[in-house]
Simulated assay, not measured.
Amino acid sequence: MQFLVIRKADAETEAGVMPSAQLIDDMTTYNARLVERGVMKSGAGLLPSAKGARVSFTNGQPAVIDGPFAEAKELIAGFSVIEAGSLQEVIDMVRDWPRSDGHGNVQIEIRQIATADDLGFSDDQQDRYNRLVDQEAAAQQQ
């Protein structure tokens, strides 16, 4: 199973405060342990919402809203994709989150990533999805 580990934004991340050298070292060490265990598939920090946009649809019509967005607690500052056998395994990994992040005051959300089986794909939909995954992997090899 794969899980999305979401580091929620806070006032500092939304203000564009860059991480300290200590936090970069701590996060790199934390992430390296996950990579060495073979459980971390990807991850990255995100720039503040002021550098982003939202696209909302009403009756199929898109409307673009430029950042920043008001509620920092509803935003994300970074993410990791983790492979694990259970939600509890991921919770146990997150318990070791670096205390230097957010001065020890961060919120992490963990969500299981839905699979084709979870979503009820038909055989044709699964085949189409598999072809897209194969195309993406081939493109990354180039």
Rank of each mutant, 00 (worst) to 15 (best):
V35Y: 08
L23I: 15
A114F: 12
F79C: 02
G102K: 01
L34E: 04
A9M: 01
E14H: 04
Q141T: 11
V106W: 08
V17H: 07
D123C: 08
Q140K: 15
A15F: 08
S80R: 11
V64H: 07
D96A: 14
A11N: 09
Y129I: 07
M18C: 08
A116E: 07
E83L: 02
D66M: 06
A137K: 14
A137L: 14
D92P: 04
D118W: 00
R37S: 13
N59Y: 10
R54S: 09
G67W: 03
A53S: 11
R7A: 15
E136Q: 10
G78W: 05
G104M: 01
D123R: 12
Q126M: 13
K51N: 14
A21V: 12
K41M: 11
G16E: 06
D118N: 05
A44Y: 07
F79R: 01
T13L: 01
R7G: 11
D96W: 05
A53C: 09
G104W: 00
G60V: 08
D123K: 12
D25G: 09
Q112Y: 05
F3R: 03
V133A: 12
E136P: 04
A72I: 03
G67C: 03
S20H: 01
A138E: 12
K41E: 10
V64R: 10
R37L: 14
G104T: 02
G104S: 02
L47P: 11
A50V: 10
K8A: 11
D25F: 05
P68Q: 06
N130A: 12
Q125F: 03
A72R: 02
E89D: 13
L4N: 08
T13V: 02
Q2K: 14
E71A: 08
G67K: 02
P68C: 05
A50I: 08
I24G: 09
I113N: 05
E36T: 13
Q141L: 13
F57P: 07
L46Y: 04
G38E: 01
V90E: 00
F79M: 05
V5F: 01
N59D: 15
D25Q: 10
T13E: 02
G85L: 03
T115Q: 00
S56T: 13
D127V: 12
R111I: 04
M40V: 04
M27P: 09
A139E: 15
A137S: 12
V106G: 05
G78Q: 03
D124H: 09
V133I: 15
A53E: 10
D66P: 06
T13Q: 01
L132Y: 12
V81P: 03
T115W: 00
T29H: 09
L75G: 04
A139V: 10
I65P: 06
L75D: 02
P19T: 04
F3K: 03
R54G: 09
R54W: 04
A139N: 11
G60N: 09
I91V: 15
S49C: 07
I6C: 05
A44I: 00
P68G: 05
K51W: 11
N130Q: 11
I113C: 09
P62L: 03
K8M: 13
